[in-house]
């Protein structure tokens, strides 16, 4: 197991290097850079900026270097934990990014749990009671969840929460807790707010995982080992959970890794609608204003998160499936 994890960790390094190149190219893609953009606005306000000043500014952000050198500067600093300076927010990227990333992870993990807790029992039920009324009902709800754009779902839920419970649910905290230190009351306040993004993000995932679970389980139910267990006299409920469910769940463990990028993607858009202090809204702003250090750091960190998520799911899979463990 130890060597397996080590091998996987080593294999991640080239992947991460290629990702960093792709991310760097991505943030360089928009024509012009933030200096020219902010210059244009300065000049519109009637300010004179000398060519020396521009050159000095460019040199300060290494924008005068050739591309490969810019990349090297950026990635070497990044590895050392220096993510550069956000020109738009006039703050080091480090101070802007960590708290938001933390909330993104909290929301993503909460949604993941929500998805699993809901989707797997429903999937099992739908497979075992195939073509029953409940099966059809869940299929319909699942389809609706799959088909509704997440921002619409967020809006509708906000509306429902507002009209039925009279609470406004934007943000992650009530105003009085927004800037206070961590306390139990603040934590409760967080719980009061986090359920909407959790449901919104979890719904699409629930819908698809439920359907996959149903299909997987239906496949497994026909396997000979199920007949063997039935022939042994194992009671139906125990049989289903001990054998086919156990095996049908395995592929899901490997999907944790793939679910994370989806959740982070979904989180971006939901956060914008719900006005959450997570990575999504800031990333969008950074991309639109070509704040390359900020955008690059976000993309890079989210990708690293995903790569680790995949590693985690592979390790989990190896832990539950002896066939992989012994390979």
């Amino acid at each position: 197991m130890g060597t397996y994890i080590l091998k996987r960790l080593l294999a991640m390094i080239p992947t991460l290097i290629i990702i960093s190149v792709v991310v760097f190219i991505l943030i360089q893609l928009p024509p012009g850079d933030i200096i020219s953009a902010s210059l244009a606005s300065l000049q519109q306000q009637g300010m004179e900026v000398s060519t020396e000043q521009i050159a000095a500014l460019r040199a300060q952000y290494n924008l005068d270097l050739p591309m490969p050198m810019q990349y090297l500067h950026w990635i070497l600093n990044f590895v050392q934990g220096d993510m550069g300076y956000s020109i738009k927010y006039e703050q080091p990227v480090n101070t802007l990014i960590w708290e938001r990333l933390g909330y993104t992870i909290i929301i993503a993990v909460a949604s993941l749990l929500f998805t699993w807790v809901l989707a797997i029992p429903i999937g099992v039920y739908s497979a075992v009671k195939q073509y029953s009324v409940g099966d059809y009902l869940f299929t319909v709800i699942g389809l609706l969840g799959l088909a509704t754009p997440s921002f619409m779902l967020a809006l509708i839920l906000m509306y429902c929460a507002y009209t039925w419970f009279g609470i406004s649910v934007g943000g992650l905290f009530s105003p009085e807790y927004a800037d206070s230190d961590w306390s139990f009351a603040r934590f409760v306040d967080l719980l009061n707010h986090i359920w909407i993004p959790m449901i919104v993000l979890g719904t699409a995932g629930t819908a698809s995982i439920m359907r996959v679970m149903r299909a997987n389980l239906l496949d497994e139910l026909g396997k000979p080992y199920v007949v063997t267990a039935r022939a042994k006299g194992v009671r139906p409920l125990k049989l289903i959970f001990k054998y086919p469910v156990r095996i049908a769940i395995n592929p899901f463990i490997s999907t944790i890794g793939w679910l994370l990028p989806t959740l982070i993607s979904g989180e971006a858009i939901v956060s914008i609608v719900l006005n959450l202090p997570t990575t999504g809204p800031l990333l969008l702003q950074a991309l639109l204003s070509q704040d390359m250090f900020l955008a690059g750091s976000f993309l890079m960190l989210l990708s690293i998160l995903t790569v680790f998520g995949m590693l985690l799911s592979d390790i989990l899979l190896a832990a539950v499936d002896p066939r992989i463990r012994y390979e």
Binding site: P224, T228, R246
Partner: peptide
């Protein structure tokens, strides 16, 4: 009454 099957490869659960 008990039964043994044709495919010993698949008649046993792979994860137990």
């Amino acid at each position: 009454m008990s039964m043994i099957f044709q495919e010993p490869m698949t008649a046993l659960s792979p994860v137990h």
